[in-house]
Design a protein around this nucleic acid. Structure first.
Lengths: 231, 231
DNA sequence: CTTGTGGAATTGTTCAACAACCTTCTAGCC
DNA sequence: GGCTAGAAGGTTGTTGAACAATTCCACAAG
């Protein structure tokens, strides 16, 4: 091993996390998180320990460990002696999420000046436009979330990225119960492009102002749609 | 019950969370979190399931549920097949925490204009100054964290408050292993006061600039002290 | 229509067991 | 001596069963 070039050793070290066998709890958590994000588990659904454990082929104790993680991620709600339920977002939650996104994403825009790390941002914008041409609105939604996560990642902060990923996962709870994804995502494709262009032109001040407007408008649209769908 | 004034019913509804009996997992999580914050469990300590479970009088399964929560809060590190360890913060972690604090706390300052919610901020400043007069540097540290959490709370966002609380809990991991708390906290008492005064004078622009300087300076001081203590 | 009451179902927690894994020590080899 | 392989012991990962406590639901009684 001593004769290997240091580059290769570094790559293997990076792979270590990937190939580390994962625990059952981890896999169960991932499966449930994906199912919730995909809308396969509707908001309010109760996740019975016995039924779910039987379906997934894991014990109640293992499942309960996974529930603790998902509850901390706010994707499920744990009610004492009653069980865990898929979270359902209210207008107040959506408003809170957008407020928090503003804090994190504007910090990303502010710290973008001069850094050559704009590639993921541009890539997400292009992916969204491409998906829109294909009429694949689910892919548009994915690209939109990827765009905003990339903006937050401009801070270079591991924690900001983790928080933002969690917030966007929560938002999927709201998207999952709403109809007409096109009306929800199409208007913002152009604005993502605009923000990306402003960043590329090193006009972070303008990009921040536009981002704030974007987030306020998106919040208004979603809250309005939620109140409308609620009837 | 129909004859009760609506005010009373509202108050009882608010009390509902308070009187809810707590689970064993919840109590264990709280105990461990407090012990870690107080420095009673040093960084790097392995938390043996059998030993800790025996000491606390809870089963391994219950303890493992608590571990999942603490790991998600980044207060412990869970290493597969090796156990959980009290987290130890490196300089990179501290830098990341301060970067994230900047995003959240400056948002608080920006949204403070005109709001009459400055009372908790002023209270924390006064508490810090009072504790400093008594030479109680542990209480000064408490008041300092309370001040910054109050600044974040100016956003009115539940999530920002939760994130900030988590970040400050993490920071205690670094404080716990450092000597001379006075040198660590005293220089910042005056600056907390200054920020609070700027907010009270509705000069949020200046308060934000000062807060950014504050956080950068604090980060530098702590990272320097960490490298120094590490030898 | 509200208030008890009983029973079924579910959660909260513990315990015991076993496989898988990590760490350490020992023995043997060059 | 220094290094490698392998055995031994201890710890974690996961399961299944058990029981108390609690919630939920239906139904009877006032």
């Amino acid at each position: 091993m001593d004769s290997s070039p240091p580059d290769l050793l570094g790559e293997f070290a990076a792979d270590r996390l990937l190939l580390g066998r994962s625990s059952t709890v981890r896999r169960v958590t991932d499966v449930l998180r994906d199912r919730i994000a995909a809308g396969a588990l509707r908001s309010g659904t109760r996740l019975s320990e016995e039924a779910l454990g039987g379906a997934l082929g894991v014990s109640r104790n293992t499942l309960r460990e996974a529930f603790r993680v998902l509850a901390h991620e706010r994707l499920v709600v744990h009610e004492m002696n009653r069980g865990v339920f898929v979270r359902s977002l209210g207008p107040a939650d959506v408003a809170d999420i957008y407020l928090t996104r503003r804090a994190l994403e504007t910090e990303g825009v502010r710290s973008a000046t001069g850094s050559g790390r704009l590639a993921p941002v541009a890539e997400a914008v292009a992916a969204g436009e491409s998906a829109a041409r294909d009429g694949d609105w689910s892919a548009v939604a994915d690209a939109d979330l990827r765009f905003h996560r990339a903006v937050g990642a401009l801070t270079g902060s591991e924690r900001i990225d983790a928080y933002l990923a969690g917030l966007l996962a929560e938002l999927r709870l709201a998207f999952a119960v709403m109809s007409d994804p096109r009306a929800l995502h199409e208007p913002f494709l152009r604005r993502n492009r605009q923000i990306a262009d402003l960043l590329a032109a090193d006009r972070s001040r303008d990009a921040e102002a536009e981002l704030v407007r974007y987030l306020d408008d998106a919040r208004e649209l979603i809250v309005a749609r939620m109140r409308q769908d609620a009837q």
